[in-house]
Each structure stands twice: as C-alpha cells, then as structure tokens.
Design a protein around this nucleic acid. Structure first.
Length: 268
DNA sequence: AGTGTATCCTGCAGGC
DNA sequence: TGCCTGCAGGATACAC
C-alpha cells in the first residue's frame, strides 16, 4: 500500500525519535517517493527515490502502521512521526517507550552505515566457520556477542538466549571459550530458532504486534526465555534466570554447564 | 581496542 | 483501590 506513494508532509510529534533536527528531517522527506520496503538486521529500510533511505530501528516497542485515508488503527497509541502520503493516507511510526530511532540517509551514509552491521544470519555469508572465527576474537559473554549487531545483524535477546539453550552453551561463557563443535552447534541453533520464529511470525511477550495488530506465535515454543523455575524440556532441571549486561538471560544449569574453573598453570 | 555499566522512556504486573 | 517496585523484545555514550 505504501509502495509508490509520495510523501507530502511529515509531522514529527516526538523529536527525540530522530537523530536530525525535525526541520531538516521533514525537508529531506518532503516529496520523496517510496520505492520499496526491506530490512537490514533489526532495521526496517524504507527505500526512497534518489536513492535515499529512511532507516527505522523499532527499539523495544516501535512499529510502522500504514493507514488508508480516514482509517484508524487502535494499535496506534503513541504516534511519534506521521508521514502523510499523497492520496494514500499515512504511514505512522508508533512507539510507547520511544527507544526507536528514525534516520534519513543519503546513499553514502547508507553505504557506510550498512557496512557497520554484521552478516545476515539467514544468508550464506553467515557460515559456521565465519561464526567460529569471530567468536575466537572476543572475550565477551556469548550472549552479549550475539546481541552485538556488528557481529551478527538482527539477533535480539530472546533468540540469543534460545539459541544458547539449543546449542547447550552457557550464555555467560566468553565467546572465545567455545570449541569449534560448540560454535557449529550455536550456528545451527541461531539459524533454526530464527527460521522457526519467522515462520511463527515472531514472539509476542507483551507488546509486539504486526501491522495488522496480530501477535506472533513463537512464545509458546520458547524453551528457556522467560521460563525461570520451570523444568528444562531436556532434563527437567529448573531453568535459571541470570542478569548480565543489564539484560536477563535464562539457561538450564544442567544442559548448559559453566566453563570449568581451570587453575592457573594447569593448561597443557 | 575491547568490554562492562548506566541511561534513555513508558507501561504493566505483582506485592503489599 | 492505589502506591511502589521491578521488569521489558534495544542501542549507545561513556568509563575503565
């Protein structure tokens, strides 16, 4: 519905959603034609004529809602930016917590920005070998590694935690402590979890809704995330919650054992 | 350079 | 009922 539409006017209701001054942003958007809508990592990419790009990071609670002329959508509770489309209604960015970010980029800026992101996990660029090599170069906890968009683009906390569970890797372990076998298992787990979640149309914990207001169906299939105290599906041990990097992680203490404490000097 | 921590903001669930 | 606390799907700026 928005493809081919021209932006007539942009209303910025919450300026903190932009990285530009509102005037500059609205001027840049004025008259642009939406050529296509795609995705890069967790960002929605609205491709404009020029070419130029409107890159939308949805944060925790953000969403884009196309509205036909006169249409109202009850999901639009906290409108932040309204793009008025000539003859076609509006494209509304809605975001309760306002952790989202909308960036207008010309071609050069787009190229530079896109280059800072890691490989798409469902593309051929993301191989077990590539992952193993990247893990080997970092000491950060595996879960933090997976959340770093420069390493892999598009994995969030839920799927990082689930992938670690499936791969039987303690999410707190330093990335470079993983063996090649574990790195391969983690690679397979990431791909599996993402494919299943996409098929189920995402995970709704509380807020997430697609543009039609539908929640995702992956929630009931989570085996670790949000299951503190419930029995592990594999071994029955209670799932444990732990916090690091200011984010919750969940794991089975039996299936995802911590790295053995190795006394100094005992190695080889 | 790489890593860990604090912070942005609002809403909701649960405890008292 | 209502107040308070903790928690949330993300990313970044800064300190070390």
């Amino acid at each position: 519905m928005v493809i081919g539409a021209r932006v007539k006017r942009t209303q910025v209701l919450k300026p903190d959603l932009l990285d530009d001054p509102p005037g500059r942003f609205t001027r840049a958007m004025k008259g642009r034609v939406i050529r296509d809508v795609s995705r890069r990592g967790k960002n929605v990419v609205v491709e404009l004529d020029g070419p130029s790009f409107l890159v939308v990071n949805l944060g925790m609670t953000g969403g884009l809602f196309p509205l036909r002329p006169g249409e109202r959508n009850p999901a639009v509770t906290h409108p932040g930016v309204r793009f008025h489309l000539a003859g076609r209604g509006q494209l509304v960015y809605n975001d309760a917590r306002r952790f989202g970010l909308l960036r207008y980029m010309d071609r050069d800026r787009w190229t530079a920005w896109s280059g800072t992101l890691g490989p798409e996990p469902l593309s051929a660029d993301f191989s077990p070998e590539v992952l193993a090599a990247a893990l080997a170069s970092s000491r950060t906890p595996v879960r933090s590694f997976l959340l770093d968009q420069r390493r892999v683009a598009g994995v969030g906390n839920i799927y990082a935690v689930e992938a670690c569970y499936r791969a039987r890797v303690d999410p707190r372990r330093p990335a470079r402590s993983l063996t090649n076998t574990e790195a391969s298992a983690l690679h397979a787990a990431i791909v599996q979890v993402l494919e299943e979640a996409v098929r189920a149309r995402g995970t709704t914990i509380r807020d997430y809704r697609d543009p039609d207001g539908e929640g995702g169906g992956f929630g009931p299939r989570l085996q670790a995330y949000g299951r503190e105290g419930q029995p592990c599906a594999r071994c029955g041990a209670p799932i444990q919650r732990t916090v690091f990097g200011n984010r919750s992680a969940f794991l089975c203490p039996q299936c995802q054992p911590p790295l053995e404490e190795t006394p100094r000097g005992s190695g080889a």
